[in-house]
Design a protein around this nucleic acid. Structure first.
Lengths: 244, 244
DNA sequence: CGGCCGCTTGACTATTATCAAAGATGGTGG
DNA sequence: CCACCATCTTTGATAATAGTCAAGCGGCCG
């Protein structure tokens, strides 16, 4: 299975790369304050009326939707430098601090004033939602058409690419979230996630210092797995390699 | 597994029910024309720059994303009365006519003029994208946390609810799309979809005249399945019922 | 009438979930 | 400072759901 990457730029390709989100924030958040959220605390929950938007200064945020019996889907994560809360006037999902987070806040009033006065900012907010939608379509593909190994490889490559973007090492990846967050993000169980990590180690794709620190030993192969190009060398062979 | 339905209204709950989309269209599409699209023709494909938006007069449209090897995900369907193409300036997915469709068109220029001049229309377009995002989060839940029976029940209830909304019988459901479209929408294979239909028949949940005409015999039970409430009476018992 | 396409059904396989339990790790209190 | 407890992760054994491969049926259109 092969994923065409070209289209991934579609929603934003025809527009100039948005100015630094943090700059927007600094420009318009005159009234805003700062907030610290402890690990595993919720920043907002599904159904809450939006009162503020946030810029993440440090920490990682996890977005999820829950069912009564504890089942949940993690729709994504947000990292330092990201602005969160742009979606809609009523939150469609929970936002939970994976680690202790420092957030800069902007009131909705300030946000609305900003979008009214600054066309670039308004467009940024709109594009953000479109990009989110695109991302969720891609995630649908990952969840319905990929094996456990491909999903985990995809996840690791996501983290690696983000590292690259912000100037960190693309091969030594910190995993701030717990296994359950990864599992709920990838539509797997924690056991399968754990086993797949073990398979990757056994196959020489990664090395692990501890559950939160992964070194990508064979990034090319991981990338191939992640995009489904790794024909008939997919989860099967990796699993067999472990059995042998 | 139980789905909380309350939040489903969240994104639009705090705003008045939007005026009839068709009315917006009639008001602003002065320049627009009409177009007829044959079954299984594409209206646009992923990556296309958006040139028009459309109001569906008749027919059903299927949105999908494709992989090179033919794998695809159907992210949703659109029906008569729906406006399509509001997402972003570059299409993030294919739009394909499931049946022969009649579409009314509005040029992008007219659309942009309309959103600039008519605040209600602009808000309608924005809300549409937010609702789409919400829908896709829900779909993630269906695809990752539900069994084949639950997924198909969910799909049938979606069609039934739409029938109700537009004044058709909620218990006799026409299925305009092919099995492959359903399968790709639900993250299953056509065989599993077909088998699950058979199971539903055997369990007395539905009756079928032909593959395109389904009667909901036990809508309550289907609704329970669809929302995951049908505890330990889920796919297992239905499958067992067939085996017996 | 025949061929094609879509749907259904069957047999078998494989991937992942489930159930269960044993290491780690980290924080707290004695 | 160490022991204990809670939580998270890993590993193992087993089972179940859905996928794959294969074949037959039926309708529709040329």
């Amino acid at each position: 299975m092969q994923i065409i990457e070209a289209h991934q730029h579609s929603a934003i390709a025809f527009r100039p790369r948005p100015t630094d989100p943090a700059a927007f924030f600094a420009k318009h958040a005159s009234q805003g304050g700062c907030r610290k959220v402890a690990a595993h605390q919720f920043i907002w929950i599904e159904g809450d009326v939006r009162r503020e938007i946030f810029l993440i200064r440090s920490g990682v945020v996890c977005f999820s939707r829950m069912l009564m019996d504890g089942r949940r889907v993690v729709t994504g994560f947000a990292y330092p430098g990201d602005i969160i809360g742009l979606g809609s006037a009523v939150h469609a999902r929970n936002a939970e601090a994976v680690q202790c987070c420092k957030l800069e806040t902007m009131t909705i009033a300030a946000f609305q004033r900003a979008t009214g006065m600054d066309a670039a900012f308004a467009r940024f907010a709109q594009d953000h939602v479109s990009a989110e939608l695109l991302h969720s379509y891609e995630h649908l593909m990952v969840l319905t058409k990929m094996t456990a190994s491909e999903r985990l490889a995809h996840f690791l490559m996501d983290l690696s690419k983000r590292n690259l973007r912000v100037g960190h090492s693309p091969t030594s990846v910190l995993i701030p979230m717990r296994r359950i967050d990864i599992a709920d993000h990838l539509g797997l169980t924690i056991e399968t996630v754990s086993r797949t990590f073990t398979c990757f180690k056994a196959a020489g794709l990664i090395a692990m210092e501890d559950p939160a620190v992964v070194y990508l030993i064979d990034p090319a192969r991981l990338a191939a797995l992640a995009s489904g190009v790794d024909e008939e060398e997919g989860s099967v062979s990796i699993r067999r390699k472990l059995a042998a």
